[in-house]
Design a protein around this nucleic acid. Structure first.
Lengths: 140, 140
DNA sequence: AGACCAGGTCTCTGATAGAGACCAAGCATG
DNA sequence: CATGCTTGGTCTCTATCAGAGACCTGGTCT
């Protein structure tokens, strides 16, 4: 029995599951919830693919991210120990972000997800068109 | 040179990148953006770990998901060809969701991400506490 | 004296997630 | 007969959140 199965098939109404992303109250779910969003994942992928980058490089690299969300996501990743933020006290200021070992581990799992999406995007778009054609609009 | 690198290091201001999740206007980014959210990923993981499930089983399985978000995410996954929805015209109705090959492929990439989070949650929480202690509140 | 740079923060507004009520069809119960 | 129960949703309302754009800091260049 795997982790999920023990945690989920059982009828025990235990509130404090220790290692179950499926359990609403589990710390791992909390972590999962804040890592599993597009900006955090793209940032990890960018740092993994292109190495250490400064704030503005990341902003250019991750197309469409706002300064606000970039700051927020980076702070989050830093706080959780995935990313290292280094400030060089020059003028104009220079701030460089890099993966820490924990972040590198995760990035290596996330990268395939990105590549898969790139490979399969066309196929998924085709499926969408087919679906939309089959379900004109006001069905169901 | 990998996909990301060709797409990003170049100075060419090409708007229509074909396979680049980093490009705001690329179709693969669009797909990535709607797959990379916690509910969709958890649903894929649940279907992958526990096999075909009906709506209410999924709702119980994926702790904390609202009927609204469950419907929305499932519809999305179905539309993109990742999930198959089967209605059995009984009463009360029975609707079963299962992975299609495309979805199974993706789920196999997503599962490790979930397990990693479960393994590392404790470590990340510790990092958070350390960070919060080092940055009392009104720093920066 | 302006203007510019990087790396942010602040404010305001439109989109979005979640809570909870409602619904339809058919069966079981009182 | 009227009620209540079931599943798989939808509808509405509100709290939260993401994005756009203005502003800030402070040192250097013109």
């Amino acid at each position: 029995m795997t982790t999920e199965e023990t945690a989920r098939t059982g009828a025990e109404p235990q509130a404090e599951q220790e290692h179950d992303v499926f359990a609403q109250l589990c710390p791992s779910r909390e972590m999962f919830a804040e890592l599993a969003d597009k900006w955090s994942l793209l940032i990890l992928m960018s740092l993994s693919a292109c190495g250490p980058q400064r704030f503005s490089e990341l902003q250019r690299g991750v197309g469409g991210v706002s300064r606000k969300m970039l700051t927020q996501s980076l702070r989050n990743l830093e706080r959780s120990g995935l990313v290292l933020r280094t400030v060089f006290p020059e003028t104009p200021p220079r701030v460089v972000y890099d993966l820490r070992p924990l972040g590198r581990e995760l990035a290596e799992l996330v990268a395939p997800l990105g590549h898969w999406t790139e490979r399969r995007a066309r196929q998924m778009l085709a499926a969408r068109e087919e679906f939309d054609a089959a379900h004109p609009e006001g069905s169901r």
